[in-house]
Design a protein around this nucleic acid. Structure first.
Lengths: 252, 252
DNA sequence: CAGCTGTGACTGGTCTGACCAGTGGACTAG
DNA sequence: CTAGTCCACTGGTCAGACCAGTCACAGCTG
C-alpha cells in the first residue's frame, strides 16, 4: 500500500465560475470595494471575452451570494454590496428547513446561545449599555398593550442589545436566525393563545429579572433565568420526551 | 398620522427566482428529496415555460447554494444534493475574509457551543457512549505520531461524538462549520509551529480531563475544562484586546 | 437664473436558436 | 454473459435579438 501523492478529484471549471472568482478575489484584495459599481453586462462581456449568458450566470451567482445587486436600467451597472450576514442567514434557514430540525433542537440552541450571551454581557456591560437594556424593557412593557407582533419586536431589540454587548456578531446572527425560524413555526399559536397577554407579562417579568441579575453582576443567575424563561415560554409546544432534554439545559 | 396598511417596498420578481423558489419549496415540502434528479434543462424549459437562459440562471443559483449539481452529459439531469455544510462554511469564510467576523468571535462561538454540548452530554451520556469517547481519545493519541492533519481529524471525531450525545444536530453542525472555518484560517500556523507536537499532547491531555469529568458526571467542570482547552489552543492567534473577551467566556 | 420636463441612450431581463465536447445507456459482436 | 461500440442526449457556451424600464441631460418654461 504505497502512499503516493494525494490526488484530488478534478472537476471541470466553468467559465462563469472563473468570473465569480475573479470578482470575489478583487473584492478580497481590495481592488473592488462595496459601493462601487461593476461595469455593465455588455462591458463585462468584452472584458472577460465570454458571451453574455456566461457573464449573467456569474452575476446570478454573485447576486445569490449577496455580493452584488443588479437593477434593470441602472446606467451605473451592478452595485457591489457591503458585506452582510444575510447570506449566512439564508444558509441557516435552509439548514433549518431541509435538515428537519425539531423545535426542541431550535429552542435548545437558543437557550444555550442566549444564556451564554447574557452571561458574557453581564461581565462586559458598561453603565450606558445597562441603561440601554432598561430602555428596551420599557418598550416591551408598552408593546404589550399593542399586539403580539409589537411585543415580539421589542423582545428582539432586547436580545439584540445583549448580543451586541457580548461582542460576538456570530452569536447575534445565529440567535436572530433561529429565533426567526422558531417564531415562524409557532407564532400563530402564541398570538392566538387565549392567555397571550399573560404570557407576555410573564415574559416581561422574566426579562426584568435578567436585567436585575446583570445589574448585580451575577451572570450565572442571569443566564439561568434567561434559559428558564425561554423554557417556560416555548416548552409547551415541544413533545414531552424532548422537554426533558431541554430541562437538562436550564441548570448548569 | 393615520397608521394605514403597512406597505412593503416592492421589487420585481425575476423569472429565475420563481424557479428557484419552486424547487426549494418542493424540497422543503418533501416533494423532492436529495438523491433524486431534476429533469434536464430542456425539459425544465417546457415545464416552466421559460427560455433555457432563465432555467440555467436558476440552476446556477441553486448550484451555488449547494442544492443541486449539474454535470455535463449526464442523461439523468441535475442531481439534488443532500444538505451540506459547504454553503454555511462558504458564507462564514467570506465574512471572515473581510473581517466581518473576527477569529475571536469564531473561537468564542466554539467555546460556548462546545462547552454547552459537553455539559449536556455529561448528563445524557450512556455507558456505551462514554466508551465511545474513550476510543476517540486512543485514536487521538495514535494520531499524534502521524501528523497534524491526522490529529485534527481525530479531534473532529471526538467533538462529533459529543455533539451526537447532546442530541442537537444544530449544535453539531454549527460546531463543525465554525471549526472548519477556524482551521482554514490558522491551520498552517499550527501545523508549522515548532512545538506542534507539544501542543497536540497538551490538547490530548485536556481532552482526557474532559472525559474524566464527564465520567464523574460533573458537566460543570467538563465544560470549563473544554473552554479552557480551546482558549489555550487558539488564544495565541487572537489579538490581545480580544483575548480578554475570550477569557470572560472560560469561567461560568 | 432655477426648476421642470421630455427624450434618448443604455441598462438588465428574457427569448430563440445554434454548436460543441462529453456522458452513459442501449445495442451489438464475440 | 461479457466487452466493446455507438449515438441520442446532456450541459456549457455562444451570437444576436427584443422589450420595458431607468437615468442623465438637453432644452423648455417660469
Amino acid at each position: 500500500m504505497a502512499r503516493g501523492p494525494q490526488f484530488q478529484p478534478v472537476q471541470p471549471v466553468r467559465a462563469y465560475q472563473r468570473i465569480v472568482e475573479q470578482v470575489e478575489d478583487a473584492l478580497a484584495r481590495g481592488d473592488l470595494a462595496p459601493g462601487q459599481r461593476l461595469p455593465s453586462e455588455r462591458e463585462l462581456v468584452a472584458q472577460f471575452e465570454v458571451s453574455r449568458s456566461t457573464v449573467r450566470e456569474a452575476l446570478r451567482v454573485l447576486e445569490s451570494n449577496g455580493v452584488v445587486r443588479s437593477r434593470p436600467g441602472d446606467p451605473n451597472g451592478p452595485e457591489l454590496l457591503p458585506f452582510s450576514q444575510s447570506g449566512l442567514r439564508k444558509q441557516m434557514v435552509r439548514l433549518a428547513r431541509v435538515d428537519e430540525l425539531t423545535l426542541a433542537e431550535l429552542i435548545g440552541f437558543r437557550m444555550i446561545m442566549d444564556g451564554a450571551a447574557i452571561q458574557v454581557a453581564s461581565r462586559l456591560r458598561t453603565p450606558e449599555q445597562l441603561a440601554e437594556m432598561e430602555e428596551t424593557l420599557v418598550a416591551m412593557r408598552a408593546a404589550i398593550d399593542v399586539d403580539f407582533a409589537a411585543f415580539s419586536e421589542a423582545d428582539l431589540a432586547f436580545h439584540d442589545v445583549i448580543a451586541r454587548i457580548s461582542r460576538n456578531s456570530l452569536i447575534q446572527t445565529c440567535n436572530e436566525v433561529v429565533r426567526g425560524v422558531v417564531l415562524s413555526l409557532i407564532s400563530d399559536k402564541i398570538a392566538h393563545a387565549p392567555n397571550s397577554r399573560a404570557l407576555m407579562q410573564e415574559s416581561l417579568q422574566h426579562h426584568a429579572e435578567v436585567v436585575d441579575a446583570i445589574r448585580a453582576g451575577d451572570g450565572h443567575a442571569a443566564a439561568r433565568i434567561a434559559r428558564q424563561n425561554m423554557y417556560d415560554y416555548y416548552a409547551g409546544y415541544v413533545p414531552d420526551p424532548e422537554q426533558e432534554t431541554l430541562r437538562a439545559l436550564i441548570d448548569d
